[in-house]
Design a binder for these strands. Structure first.
Length: 537
DNA sequence: AAAGTGTTGGAGAT
DNA sequence: ATCTCCAACACTTT
């Protein structure tokens, strides 16, 4: 039937029209080849076999897709949402639409790489050209590793120095408006109703809308992402003086930008945000990485680079950068932590905010992550990753995993004796306990002097404040002072074992009588060498 | 071999 | 607000 050919841009992450090189390329090619242009997104049910998406992130994705559809209409196009597994669906689409070119943004997650390999093979079979562009991060991990002579920079400072030698890619312009000749007419034979390609409603995504009534704080979408970014950029003092450790984990209004959910879905381009921050800095005194706002974006770059080059990055076993620690499975502890019922009001407030709103401050993440793992509950960081993955709007495979590796002192960070106190830490920025009162309302009548430690209040006063510990609010599941001491010794043992294990690796001949001072140095050198070898493909 | 550094600890002193 | 100490890690620089 010699029908006109089609150029497809496949959205996965990068759910935006701005700074989207693969989209721009597809539009340009469609125009020059006089082909139809279609932008697609695939709802892949397979993703649920390996990740949990809570109702709030479904909501955020749904809003992001709706907004993307609207923004594509401004260039005379629309979004086609395809229900199905990419590997099964693409061959059908290639045939149905007579596809000659497919473009998408390259991703680094193992799941994506595997999926894309299959799709690329299918494309070859159907004689479909594939163009991948890179726009996920500012610095392409491949180029970073190349610049570092084949090894991954494993410290932030090292990453900074390597990145400083790389060219910073500038955002690309929005795609031009498509001529009518590129707009496909509805083929009556293909499907009876164009509506099957519409952005799904929440109900169609299997989300009960009554479940999401309270999640209105951060709407999804590129339009909201750009609005939020521009609003933050107006506050020059905030941008220039930003120092992460001085922001508050427990203010009632977020003390940081909350642009992370938009970066996660690619509704906001990291390259654009980076450029905008630099524009505000220009000619002004400003803070510096790692604590500055620019530094926060570079943390994202750092974790993406390590994630892209580390085998079994999201697991302890088989992960060469991860200290092997004998965590214990404890469903009771895990459930209490997850549901904000640990008995520590500061911890519970954070976990409840996470579940309700899908975003918590970075330092709040530190406090609850330390608590779950090396600080108090001795549960695996992998358990924590899964809970964050379910609830966080910004749950990002590379970043979420990286932060858990850090906080559990499994990689990157090693000063395991620095433990966050579930009582003292929050008091520094919220001595009144207003944050606790908001998210753990059963404690709202407790005075500021005891709201962080309600178990210390006499039963008489507990009754007076309308919240009896053990009845209306749980007893603390562990005694922090004791748990911390025990866990410190467990960490010490795990680190000592690592040292010995590295020392006994096959390529190294161990000197049984070598002085102790030498041991750590030798072990460290060996580990570094083996890592470098490992990263050189 | 030793000193310095590492995004953001806590407690107690000044 | 800034100091020391706690008991002390990995890794980099000198």
């Amino acid at each position: 039937m010699a029908s006109k050919t089609t150029v497809i841009h496949w959205f996965r992450k990068g759910l935006r029209v701005h700074d989207n090189p693969a989209l721009v390329r597809a539009v340009e090619e469609a125009i020059s080849r006089k082909s139809y242009f279609r932008a697609i997104f695939m709802l892949d049910p397979g993703i649920l076999s390996w990740m949990t998406v809570g109702p709030n992130r479904w909501r955020f994705l749904q809003e992001t897709l709706s907004d993307l559809d609207e923004n594509l209409k401004k260039i005379n196009s629309r979004l086609y949402v395809i229900r199905g597994n990419p590997n099964e669906t693409f061959p059908k689409l290639f045939k149905l639409w007579n596809v000659e070119l497919l473009t998408f943004e390259h991703d680094i997650e193992p799941y994506s790489i595997e999926r894309d390999e299959i799709v690329k093979n299918q494309a070859e079979k159907f004689n479909v050209e594939v163009i991948e562009e890179y726009s996920l991060t500012i610095f392409n991990p491949e180029l970073v590793v190349q610049k570092n002579r084949g090894s991954t920079p494993m410290t932030y400072q090292k990453f900074l120095s390597v990145a400083s030698e790389l060219k910073v890619p500038q955002p690309v312009d929005n795609p031009t408006k498509l001529p009518n000749s590129c707009i496909p007419e509805l083929d009556k034979n293909e499907l009876k109703d164009e509506e099957v390609y519409d952005v799904p409603t929440l109900e169609q995504l299997g989300v009960n809308s009554s479940e999401i009534s309270e999640y209105s704080r951060f709407p999804g979408g590129e339009t909201e992402a750009l609005r939020r970014m521009n609003e933050k950029l107006k506050d020059v003092k905030f941008i220039c003086e930003f120092e992460k450790p001085n922001t508050s984990p427990n203010s009632l209004e977020p003390s940081t930008t909350v642009l992370s959910p938009y970066l996660k879905f690619g509704a906001l381009s990291a390259r654009l945000f980076y450029q905008k921050i630099k524009e505000v800095y220009r000619g002004r005194k400003h803070s510096s990485p790692p604590v500055s706002l620019e530094g926060q974006l570079i943390w994202r770059e750092f974790y993406y680079t390590v994630a892209a080059t580390t085998e079994n990055y999201d697991r302890m076993v088989g992960n060469k950068i991860c200290t092997q620690i004998p965590w214990k499975t404890n469903p009771k502890y895990l459930e209490a932590w997850k549901n904000g019922r640990s008995g520590y009001p500061f911890i519970d407030a954070i976990m409840r905010q996470l579940k309700q709103e899908g975003w918590i401050h970075h330092l709040g993440r530190h406090a609850v992550a330390c608590f779950l793992t090396r600080g108090d509950l001795w549960c695996s960081w992998e358990d924590g990753v899964k809970v964050f993955e379910e609830f966080l709007l910004d749950a990002d495979w590379a970043l979420n995993t990286g932060n858990w590796l850090w906080l559990s002192a499994s990689a990157f960070f090693h000063q395991y004796y620095r433990v966050y106190s579930p009582i003292a830490f929050g008091k520094k920025t919220d001595p009144e306990g207003k944050y606790i009162k908001k998210y753990v309302p059963e404690l709202r009548k407790y005075p500021s002097g005891s709201i962080y430690e309600p178990w210390k209040v006499s039963l008489e006063n507990q009754k007076k404040y309308g919240c009896v510990i053990g009845t209306d609010y749980p007893h603390r599941i562990v005694i922090h002072e004791d748990a911390m001491k025990e866990n410190l010794s467990r960490m010490k043992a795990a680190y000592a074992k690592k040292k010995v294990d590295v020392e006994e690796t096959p390529q190294g001949k161990r000197k049984a009588d070598s002085p102790k001072g030498n041991t750590s140095k030798k072990a460290a050198t060996k580990q570094r060498n083996s890592l470098e070898k490992y990263f050189k493909k």
